Computed example of a mutant assay.
Amino acid sequence: MAHYIKPGRLEARLVHGTVGWLARRGLSLAGSAELSVRGRGSGEWRTVPVNPLDAEGGRFLVSARGDGQWVRNLRAAGDGRLRVGRSTLPFTAVEVPDEEKAPLLRAYLSRWGWQVGRFFDGVTAKSSDEELRRVAPRHPVFRITTTPGAGTRG
């Protein structure tokens, strides 16, 4: 069974709702953005706030909570959009294999460990590569690639 830590109603409504609302209005908290990806069953756009990671010469989306709906939708769709304010950036996504995740998880925890550390079973940015590899299967990571000039403003 896939690993996923579902947010409580209060967290989903207050925290995620507020961060998404702010991102739509151009206010990014610590680098947050609103991810939009088409639902794998409905085809409808679904949104969730995320923390895009710039590391290792690329841009990545890391799922701190595990194999949630946005992860499954992104696997199925293969693409999505990141939005902050009026700027929308379309992208394609490729999932990173577990054996390549350790430096990306370290960078992610270094940047956002204060916010998401509780989902990593005591593993921190200062943990060994072995510890990071141990939790890697529980945290999907996607390399996202944008097309220059494909973003929209308006």
Results as ranks from 00 to 15, higher is better:
19 V>Y: 03
99 E>L: 09
78 G>Q: 06
106 R>Y: 11
152 T>E: 14
138 R>T: 05
92 T>L: 03
154 G>F: 13
152 T>G: 12
42 S>F: 07
15 V>C: 02
31 G>D: 08
97 P>W: 10
43 G>Q: 12
53 L>H: 06
40 R>K: 10
55 A>K: 02
21 W>G: 00
125 A>F: 04
143 R>G: 01
53 L>I: 08
34 E>T: 13
145 T>L: 06
132 L>G: 06
76 A>K: 07
43 G>H: 13
65 R>Y: 05
9 R>P: 08
27 L>M: 10
126 K>N: 11
120 F>A: 05
13 R>N: 04
64 A>S: 15
40 R>F: 05
93 A>N: 07
10 L>M: 10
40 R>Y: 03
88 T>D: 04
115 Q>G: 00
9 R>D: 09
106 R>I: 05
2 A>R: 14
62 V>R: 05
143 R>M: 03
58 G>E: 01
26 G>D: 07
143 R>V: 02
26 G>M: 09
117 G>Q: 04
147 T>S: 12
105 L>F: 07
73 N>S: 04
53 L>W: 06
60 F>L: 00
86 R>S: 13
46 R>D: 05
19 V>M: 06
22 L>R: 03
114 W>P: 00
44 E>H: 15
94 V>T: 15
77 A>T: 12
48 V>W: 13
56 E>N: 09
70 W>T: 01
153 R>C: 06
28 S>G: 11
108 Y>K: 03
76 A>L: 04
9 R>V: 09
52 P>V: 11
44 E>I: 14
70 W>M: 01
110 S>V: 00
6 K>T: 14
74 L>G: 05
58 G>N: 00
136 A>K: 07
28 S>I: 10
142 F>M: 01
7 P>T: 07
132 L>Y: 04
83 R>S: 07
136 A>I: 09
71 V>E: 07
71 V>M: 03
4 Y>Q: 06
64 A>K: 06
140 P>Y: 13
23 A>F: 00
113 G>Q: 05
101 K>T: 08
134 R>H: 09
29 L>E: 02
9 R>W: 15
21 W>S: 06
101 K>G: 06
11 E>V: 14
59 R>T: 13
150 A>L: 06
126 K>E: 15
32 S>R: 12
139 H>C: 05
128 S>P: 11
127 S>M: 10
66 G>Q: 07
41 G>W: 14
22 L>T: 08
10 L>C: 01
154 G>K: 12
34 E>G: 02
90 P>H: 07
72 R>Q: 14
87 S>M: 12
96 V>Q: 01
36 S>A: 15
35 L>A: 08
141 V>G: 01
69 Q>C: 01
31 G>A: 11
22 L>P: 03
140 P>N: 07
19 V>E: 03
